[in-house]
Amino acid sequence: MMQIKRRPETALALAHSLPPAAAAAGEAETIIRVSDLSIVFDTAQGQVIAVDRVTFSVNRGEFVCIVGPSGCGKSTVLNTIAGLEVPYSGEVTVNGRLMQRPRPDVGMVFQQPHLFPWKSVRRNIAHGPRMLGKSRGEARAIADGLIEMIGLGRFADAYPHTLSGGMQQRVAIARALANQPRVLLMDEPFGALDAQTRSVMQDNLLELRERIDATVVFVTHDLDEAILLADRVLIMSAGPGRVLRDLGVNLPRPRSNAIMLDPAYIALKKDCLDLIRTEGRRAFDQSSAG
């Protein structure tokens, strides 16, 4: 697996520059606001509350991980921030505007790469800019810059089915970044990869994150992944989905997978595990009793 290369100094590089001085100085600017969000699904067994009055906000430039067991509604929350799903009650705003449908300032990477199989790597990445009205040449320049950034220069003209799962997912990340979104949503993007590829991808993402301006909300069921990547971890519980705890991760950056041996990391992980275990037992007792 290749490492992410140093960013080329192009127009794209300027557009993706580091957070502005205001954010760096600690004047937190809220970019995502999830208020009292509930989502109800209609199933054959009647209505099921998937997400129950979830409230949180994310500041500009933050990297927030939502972690929780499967079925806790974490992906549903993410889909609502994406505008792919509509709240049952409550609301989601991004950049002060209500999310009702997908918007180009919010990008998303899914668990599966979902690359367009009939398009080359370059044209997959150029798709977004083309749809937003950029000329062929501009879109190509943006794509080439991102291909360089994800270290797939040799594969610009390759088609998705010829790439490995990890490479496909890097293309999917580049494709989501091509529209220069303010917010990048990631729904278990490394969940389908093998353990080795996953840890390389995590390190790649940490590097990438140092060089882009986007705010990231990352959903995972892997606690290690969440602590490794995040500035903040939201721990959710299942049935119905609620936010149990909102934890700051004050580990130094830049980070890599090596941080998992750090005592501060281990202490934080232990706290989280205790919380999850207590909650898991409560949910289990409740379902057994019922």
Binding site: L84, H114, F116, H127, G128, M131, L132
Partner: peptide, 26 residues
């Protein structure tokens, strides 16, 4: 048509017309 492709295209700002011509038809 793979719903995942349609969602990905939606997130990239694909307008209805292009969605039909490019993603759905192909």
């Amino acid at each position: 048509v793979d719903r995942g492709l349609i969602r990905a295209a939606l997130m990239l700002g694909t307008p209805r017309r292009q969605m039909l011509q490019e993603i759905v038809l192909l």
